[in-house]
Design a protein around this nucleic acid. Sequence first.
DNA 1: CGGGGGCTTGATGAGACTCAAGAGCGGTGG
DNA 2: CCACCGCTCTTGAGTCTCATCAAGCCCCCG
Lengths: 242, 242
Amino acid sequence: MTQVDLAPKSCSNCPIRPRAICSRCTDEELNELDKIKYYKTYAAGSSVVLMGDPMTFVASVVAGVATLSRSMADGRMQMVGLLLPSDFIGRPGRETASFDVTAVSELTLCHFHKKPFEKVTQTTSHVQERLIEIALDELDAAREWMLLLGRKTAREKIASFLLICARRLGSREGEGLRLELPLTRDAMSDYLGLTIETVSRQMAALKRDGVLVLEGTRKITIPDLNRLLDEAGDDSDGVTLA
Amino acid sequence: MTQVDLAPKSCSNCPIRPRAICSRCTDEELNELDKIKYYKTYAAGSSVVLMGDPMTFVASVVAGVATLSRSMADGRMQMVGLLLPSDFIGRPGRETASFDVTAVSELTLCHFHKKPFEKVTQTTSHVQERLIEIALDELDAAREWMLLLGRKTAREKIASFLLICARRLGSREGEGLRLELPLTRDAMSDYLGLTIETVSRQMAALKRDGVLVLEGTRKITIPDLNRLLDEAGDDSDGVTLA
DNA sequence: CGGGGGCTTGATGAGACTCAAGAGCGGTGG
DNA sequence: CCACCGCTCTTGAGTCTCATCAAGCCCCCG
C-alpha cells in the first residue's frame, strides 16, 4: 500500500492532460476548470459510487485503475468498463449513477462538481467537443466488447483482454512485449463474462502453448504479438500497438 | 414489399423530431440542417454501410428498422445495436465505419453530408448537446447489453429483449400488452448472442409457461408485464413502460 | 507456525451449440 | 386447384464448452 502523492498541484504538470477532458483547453479555460476541481484518493478495493447513488460530480482518472460494473439481484455481475488514467467518469445531465465504480488499485481522481462543470461545458466548446469524442470512443469500445461477450470463446476472450492491456500498458522488451496486469483473476473474470476458474485455466493453457510467459501471476511477457492477435480472433487488419 | 412514401417533405412534419438530433433546434437552425439533408430509402435486407467503408454521411432513422453489427473473420457475428426511428447513425470526426449497418425492414433515413454537418455541430450548441445525450444514452444501453451478453441465461436474454421491444413498440391491450417483433428469429439470435435454435426453444418455453401468447411468429401478447420483468432477471426497481 | 487471500487444479454436470430433419406458410406456375 | 418450392421456424439427439463444487497450493504476514 505505497502511499504516493499522485495529486498534481495544478493542471500545468498534470500527467493526463493530452488525453483528458481538458486536452484542448486554452490556459484561460484551464483556469476556469481549475476553480472547480479537487483531487481525491481512494484506497484499493473501495467503492467510488454505487449504482443509484446521486451523482454530484464528474471526474477524470489521474492515476490508478477503476472498474465500472453492474450487478444483478442474485449477485451475478458484469464489468462494463475499465477505467485507466485519463478516462472520464460520470455523465453531465444525469442525476444518479447507472453503474458501480470501484477502485481496483489505489486511485486518484480529479473531480469537478457537476453543476459548475455543466456550466463550463455549455460555454466551452473545447470541453464539449472532447466530451463527444470520449463518449463516442467509449461507445465503440463497448460495442467491440459486446462482440467479445456474445461470440468469443474463453480463450479468445483472454487473448483479447491481454491485447487491450498490451496496447495501453505494455512496453517493448526485445522483440516481445512486457506488461503487468492491472486486474486480479477475479476482476478479469468479471470483465470477460467468465468464472475465475476458467480464466485461470485459459491463462495456463496460453502459457503452456507458448503464447505468453508468466512471472508470478501479474507480470507477463508476450513473445510474439501476432500470435496473440491470432488467438484473439479479431480481424487483424491494421491492429497495431499504439 | 409495400412501397410507401415515408419521406416527409420538410422538417416541420417530421415524425421523429421530438427525439432526433434536431429536437432542440430553433426554426432558424432547422433551416440550416434542411439545406444539407436528403432522404433515402433502403430495401429490407439491403446493406446501408459495411465496416471499413468510408463514411461520407451521418443520418437519422425516420422509419423502419436497421441493425448495427460486427462480424468476425470466420463468420460469427454480433449485433451491437438496434436502430429504431429517431436513432442516429454515424459519428462526426471518424472517416470509416466501425460497424455494419443493415436495413432489416424497409428503411428510410434522413441523411446529412458529413462535412457540412460537422460544421453545423461546431456552431450549433443545440445539436452538439443533443449529440452528447444521444451518445451517452447509447453508451448506457450498450453497457446494459453487456450485462445481458456476459451474464444472463438464454431465457433471461429473450425476456429482456421482449421487454425492450415492449417499451419502444408495445401498445396496451386490456391489462396486457401487444406488439409485433421487429426482428426475425435469426436476427434475434444475432442480437442476443445465441443461436436461432436456442431462441426458438426459449420462445416456445416462455409460451408454454404462459409468459407470452404467440400469434404467428411475430405477433405476441404479454398478459402480465411483471411476470416478464421477473423472467428478465433485472433489478425491477422503477422499471416501467414509457 | 497458523491463517488468509489469491490462484490453480480436478471431477462433474448443466446449458447452449451443432447437426439434422421436418413442419408451416406464402408464392408461383402448371 | 393443387403440387412444388423457398423461406423461416421448430423439434430432436448428441456433443462440447464452460460453470459449479471442492480441494489444495503458494506466498505473504502476523
